[in-house]
Design a protein around this nucleic acid. Structure first.
Length: 523
DNA sequence: AAAAAAT
């Protein structure tokens, strides 16, 4: 049952009367065209927002946004939150999780007012972008209420945030670092915070935020209501939930598109040096509205984005090293359609909700298979078919296998015209071999024919035991402080010796020269 | 190995 966002809303059921709230029966409830008992069976089964006990100003905001049916997590969680219960929600983004806590929070908070420096509720998010997204949610659903909220995230002026706090806020949305910082400076009191939301707990765990979270929870009154959300329920997460929640109502909703059949996937194996060309080809051939392209590294995000722009694409870059102002405006530009392509790191792999995304491209296969699911889950939403295409180099069979094992589905191979389409190479690569393979891009064997020499395949898994690679590495001078840590970046730079610098070759010159997006006019 | 988050 796809109680997704909402049906366009011409089909109005006759259930409107059930609304328990003082609702002024939300005008426009029954348009003249009311299709009588049309489609009762289906419609009947779906719950309505108006049945959830939200008051008129909130219900009106929901109506105005065109939403009619709550998603499963919303339908299940909202009544319990309103009841004052703790909630443990196992759900990931795309399930409507955010509104499942923002809506009842608005309901609970309306009516009384905040006092200076004492926020009445707190929402913790792992990334700044998610915090912004939640704030947006409050703006949308709270527009007929007089509640205030503040965003407490890094990368932006603290003075301004402090000032808002001083005036008193009902809802504080924060990333952990800045919150603790401000708390320790005395700009904030959490004793009156009676409602806590911990969002994306599993990701907080991945990012090492748990100690911070524990610290923050310790600053709150034990007499609080806590809502805890996580996409998974690993033992570690369970332990946290036990520590933070009391007698929670547990709600689990199935992921919206674990490997949704609504996503068409494909994988091309190409040489690292051909990746950009292959991607451009895919981008041009796709019937694409907008797309996210994921890279594993921030620097590759920059490089790829520049290259795409140079080739005439409308692209912007998003990763954690960019200034917050840029992150924000780029994301907005992409959401608004001003940018067609968003090139990003895994900062955007989870959580970020961008409606109507037609394509996801993995410029690199993610290191962790779960991230593949998160990444491609950005597309194929709301019942539309999404497309997710990935590029891999021949030595990444392991990553692909891990993904296929996790999802239980093979990723169909695709061929990209105009580049060498390779096979998995079964020669086990010695550690460190990868860098090299990039630099010497010139002499690629094409494998349109059979895969290369039938290396002893799995026969020799452990080759040259005890590689003893880095015992002698410039151990000598730990170098004081900064700067020098590039010293041993590359052992001997065999491929492309650089002469004339003695021992002081600047590190950047030792890096394989893959950049120079001077890519000659391809096709 | 990489990314995120406080300065």
């Amino acid at each position: 049952m796809s109680a997704k966002k909402t049906s366009p809303a011409p089909t109005r059921s006759a259930k409107k009367a059930v609304a328990p709230a003082p609702a002024t029966s939300t005008e426009a409830a029954l348009p003249p065209d009311a299709p009588e008992q049309a489609a009762p069976a289906q419609e009947e089964a779906l719950p309505l927002f108006s049945e959830l006990g939200l008051s008129e100003p909130i219900q009106r905001a929901i109506d105005e946004m065109g939403y009619r049916h709550p998603t499963p997590i919303q339908a299940q969680a909202i009544p319990y939150v309103l009841m004052g219960r703790d909630v443990l929600g196992v759900a990931q983004t795309g399930t409507g999780k955010t509104a499942s806590f923002t809506l009842p929070m608005l309901e609970i908070l309306q009516g009384s007012r905040a006092r200076a420096r004492m926020p009445r509720s707190l929402i913790l998010e792992p990334t700044r972008e998610l915090a912004l997204q939640v704030a947006e949610n409050f703006v949308n659903y709270g527009k007929h209420l007089k509640l205030t909220h503040a965003l407490l995230i890094g990368g932006e002026s603290m003075a301004e945030q402090k000032e808002v706090l001083n005036r008193g806020v009902d809802v504080l949305i924060a990333t952990p670092g800045r919150l603790i910082d401000l708390f320790e400076r005395g700009g904030l009191l959490l004793t009156q915070t009676k409602l806590l939301v911990i969002d994306e707990a599993d990701r907080m765990l991945d990012m090492g935020f748990i100690p911070d979270i524990e610290k923050i929870v310790g600053m709150l009154s034990p007499l609080r209501q806590t809502l805890f959300f996580s996409a998974t329920m690993a033992p570690e997460i369970r332990r946290l939930a036990d520590a933070f929640l009391s007698n929670p109502k547990e709600i689990t909703v199935s992921r919206p598109s674990s490997v949704a059949s609504t996503i068409e996937t494909g994988l091309a194996i190409v040489d690292g040096a051909d990746k950009r060309r292959a991607l451009r080809k895919l981008l041009r051939e796709a019937d694409m509205q907008n797309a996210i392209v994921f890279c594993n590294r921030k620097r590759d995000v920059d490089v790829l984005c520049k290259s795409l722009i140079k080739h005439g694409f409308s692209a912007g870059a998003l990763h954690g090293d960019l200034p917050q102002s840029v992150r924000f405006s780029t994301l907005e530009a992409f959401k608004s359609g001003a940018l067609q392509i968003l090139v990003c790191s895994d900062i955007a792999a989870r959580g970020i909700d961008i409606g109507g995304l037609s394509h996801v491209f993995n410029f690199d296969l993610p290191f962790h298979a779960e991230d593949y699911v998160h990444r491609i889950g950005r597309t194929g939403r709301a019942g539309r078919t999404g497309h997710a295409y990935s590029l891999a180099t021949p030595d990444e069979e392991g990553l692909a296998q891990a993904i296929e094992k996790l999802t239980g589905k093979p990723i169909p191979r695709i061929e990209v015209k105009g580049v060498d389409n390779l096979e998995w190479s079964d020669e086990p690569r010695p550690a460190g071999g990868r860098r090299k393979s990039r630099a010497e891009s010139g002499s690629r064997r094409k494998s349109n024919a059979a895969p290369p020499a039938p290396a002893p395949a799995s026969a020799a898994p452990v080759e040259e035991a005890a590689p003893a690679p880095k015992p002698s590495r410039s151990r000598s001078a730990p170098a004081m402080g900064s700067g020098r840590r590039d010293q041993g970046l590359l052992p001997a730079a065999p491929d492309h010796a650089i002469t004339g610098f003695g021992d002081d070759i600047p590190a950047f010159m030792q890096l394989p020269r893959r950049e120079k997006p001077v890519v000659p006019a391809d096709e």
